Simulated assay, not measured.
Amino acid sequence: MTSLPLRLARGLDTVLDRTVAPGYTRIGPAIRRRLPTWPADPEPGALAGKVAAVTGATSGLGVATAQGLAKLGAQVRLVVRDVDKGERVRAEMLRRLPGADIVVDRCDLADLDDVRRFAAEFGPHRLDVLVHNAGVMPATRTESPQGHEMTMALHVLSPILMTELLRRRLHGHDARVILVTSGGMYSQVLRADDPEFLDGTYSGTTAYARSKRAQVELLPVLDAHWSSDGIGVNATHPGWADTPGVVDSLPTFHKLTGPFLRDAEGGADTTVWLAATMPSPDTGELWHDRRVRPTHLLRRTRTGDAERELMWDWVRAQIGTS
């Protein structure tokens, strides 16, 4: 399949993406890796001497991402709420990667005050990779300690606040910030008029997808905001991966699609690749399987600049930054 002309290979890749089911399952990377358009893996040791932080790194995609970064030589900081669980993950990773440099940091990502505490106490003077992976899909409407709807607090407010507070450590050395989003966001329009999901009947899956839509819609704004410090920001979506979060939150989906789901390493592949590939990738983009993807598949979800700016104004007001 590697002998396919580039134009045909790109067309096949696009078809896999637009038809969703084949491309998002393990079938997608199985085919794409054999195409001439598949980018090369990062060089061994590509992250040697660099520091990477991964939030939500106690299961699923978070563990796979952290392990992938450690394999490439990074010092990896597991940013977790449950330190005991984080230490168990660290011990298992060291068993698999003897000599790896892995540290456990405590932070409740849903609590903006704890994010501020974490950033103030963050040890390294330099941070090269910041992966915002922590996620939640509550069954009922739940609020953070500051009174924000939980998915919006954890997926939007917390990552932006943490990055803002760590800008000094990210500044000036090709640092990369990566938001792990979800293909579920394709079903939702940006609700800048109701970011806290106060109107209508609450649905955890809808709230999750709305918050992921907000992540993606804010990419160009965040890219412009942080680019002056030499900080690149992108989002990745993992496709359909077999993780504890899917089992717990979407049991019917997992039962129906289980044999076709990617493993966690497959879901984390593009995040790890973006963190380490050279030269630096384009920023302010949504990526899946190592290629920039469209942020909208449906006309009804398209967002105007006014809605995007309204959401950005709301975010800044909630986290207290300029």
Rank of each mutant, 00 (worst) to 15 (best):
180 V>R: 05
13 D>K: 07
149 E>A: 13
67 Q>F: 03
123 G>C: 03
104 V>E: 01
215 Q>W: 08
107 C>S: 09
293 R>E: 04
149 E>Q: 14
22 P>T: 01
223 D>N: 11
122 F>D: 10
150 M>K: 14
178 I>M: 05
125 H>K: 14
11 G>Y: 15
113 D>H: 08
191 R>C: 14
189 V>S: 13
137 M>R: 10
306 A>S: 11
115 V>R: 04
38 W>R: 04
283 T>F: 02
118 F>R: 06
108 D>M: 00
314 W>K: 10
64 A>Q: 10
185 M>P: 03
313 D>F: 06
144 S>M: 14
6 L>S: 10
150 M>N: 08
311 M>P: 07
68 G>W: 02
109 L>P: 03
209 A>W: 12
231 I>D: 03
280 S>C: 11
23 G>T: 03
255 K>Q: 14
234 N>L: 09
274 L>G: 04
65 T>D: 12
230 G>Y: 10
164 E>R: 09
273 W>V: 08
110 A>F: 00
219 L>C: 09
36 P>R: 13
40 A>N: 14
4 L>S: 13
311 M>V: 11
162 M>S: 01
242 D>K: 13
321 T>G: 07
230 G>N: 10
37 T>H: 05
153 A>K: 02
153 A>N: 05
233 V>P: 01
175 A>Q: 05
1 M>R: 00
170 L>D: 00
214 A>G: 03
137 M>Q: 14
271 T>A: 05
57 A>Q: 00
161 L>H: 02
149 E>V: 08
219 L>R: 00
173 H>A: 07
101 D>S: 13
212 K>G: 03
90 R>L: 14
199 D>K: 15
281 P>E: 05
222 L>P: 07
73 G>E: 08
181 T>M: 02
43 E>D: 12
64 A>F: 00
290 R>G: 01
167 R>L: 08
7 R>E: 13
140 T>S: 09
54 V>W: 01
73 G>T: 04
69 L>P: 05
281 P>C: 06
